[in-house]
C-alpha cells in the first residue's frame, strides 16, 4: 500500500501566545514548532499499516524551511520519503488554497491512501484533508480511530458523538482524517534519526505548482480572549457551598 501522510508543523501546544505587530497573527520569534498532534497519530497509523501490509509511507508537508525538520522527524519515525512544498507565504492562502497545492504536489504519486490528522492545533479548521479528497475526487471519512485493510478496500472505525461509534467501509484510493489518542505514538530514536539522513526529501517550490492564490476567506485580526482561567472559591457552610457548586455545574459547566 502506498500511503501519503499530510502533516503540519504548528507552534508547540503550550507556546506563549503573543500577538505580532500586524495584529493578524502571533509573534513567532520565541516559538518552538512541533508536528501537529493528530498528524502524529495519522503518521503512526500509516506506519502500522506499512508494518502489517508492506508498502511505502510518504510524508507531505507545506511551509517554510523549518518544516523540513518536522518531515525529518517523520522520516526518523519510519516514513520512507518526504515531499516538502516550500512556501513562505502559506498564511495568505485559505484551506482550499493549501489543499490545492497539496493535490498538485502529489498528483503523480497515485497513492492508495492519504491520511491526515483530524485538525491542526493552531488554526483548528479540520478541513484540509476533506477538501483534498474532494479535489482528488476520492472518497473520504473523518474522525477515524482504526483502519483495517480488506479485500475490497478498507474497513474503518469512526468516532461519532456522545460515545457512539460506527464501522465504515470504503474503496481505495481514499482519504482519512485520524482522531488523536487511539494508538500509542512511537518515540523518535537515535537509529531512526540516523537512518532518516539517507532518506529522500523532495522540495517542491509552491510557486511552481501554478495554483491561483486568491483566498476566499481572510483572517483580518486576532485577539486574546478576555476571560482567563481563575479559581473560583465557593465559601459558606458545607450546604451553601454544595448548593453554589451545583448551580455552577448546571449553568456554567453544564454537566447536570
Amino acid at each position: 500500500m502506498k500511503i501519503i501522510v499530510a502533516i503540519k508543523q504548528v507552534p508547540e501546544r503550550d507556546a506563549r501566545i503573543r500577538i505580532d505587530s500586524s495584529g493578524r497573527w502571533i509573534a513567532l520569534d520565541d516559538i518552538e514548532f512541533r508536528m501537529n498532534e493528530s498528524d502524529a497519530y495519522a503518521l503512526e497509523e500509516a506506519l502500522l499499516l506499512k508494518e502489517a501490509h508492506g508498502g511505502e509511507v510518504i510524508v507531505l508537508s507545506a511551509g517554510p524551511e523549518r518544516v523540513g525538520q518536522t518531515i525529518r522527524e517523520a522520516l526518523a519515525k519510519g516514513a520512507d520519503r518526504g515531499i516538502h512544498i516550500a512556501s513562505d507565504s502559506l498564511a495568505s492562502l485559505d484551506a482550499l488554497g493549501v489543499a490545492r497545492l497539496m493535490a498538485a504536489a502529489i498528483a503523480d504519486e497515485h497513492a492508495d491512501l492519504i491520511l491526515t490528522g483530524l485538525q491542526s492545533d493552531d488554526l483548528g479548521l479540520g478541513q484540509t484533508g476533506v477538501i483534498l479528497a474532494e479535489l482528488l475526487g476520492i472518497p473520504h471519512s473523518s474522525l477515524i480511530l482504526k483502519i483495517e485493510k480488506t479485500d475490497s478496500g478498507l474497513r474503518l472505525l469512526r468516532e461519532l458523538e456522545d460515545g457512539w461509534f460506527q464501522h465504515i467501509s470504503l474503496p481505495t484510493p481514499a482519504l482519512l482524517t485520524i482522531q488523536s489518542g487511539n494508538t500509542k505514538l512511537r518515540y523518535a530514536t537515535l537509529m531512526g534519526i540516523k537512518k532518516a539522513k539517507t532518506k529522500e526529501l523532495r522540495t517542491v517550490d509552491a510557486a511552481s505548482l501554478g495554483i491561483d492564490a486568491q483566498p476566499g476567506l481572510l483572517l483580518d485580526a486576532v485577539a486574546l480572549p478576555s476571560r482567563q482561567k481563575t479559581t473560583q472559591m465557593l465559601p459558606g457552610t458545607p450546604a451553601e457551598a454544595a448548593a453554589a457548586l451545583v448551580a455552577k455545574l448546571q449553568q456554567e459547566v453544564r454537566v447536570l
Partner: peptide, 17 residues
C-alpha cells in the same frame, strides 16, 4: 533497546514524548 526503538513501554513512551 531505546535507541533502536525495541523498548515498548506505555509510561516510557509517554515520558519521551
Amino acid at each position: 533497546a531505546v535507541n533502536t526503538g525495541e523498548w515498548d513501554d506505555d509510561h516510557g513512551g509517554k515520558l519521551f514524548l
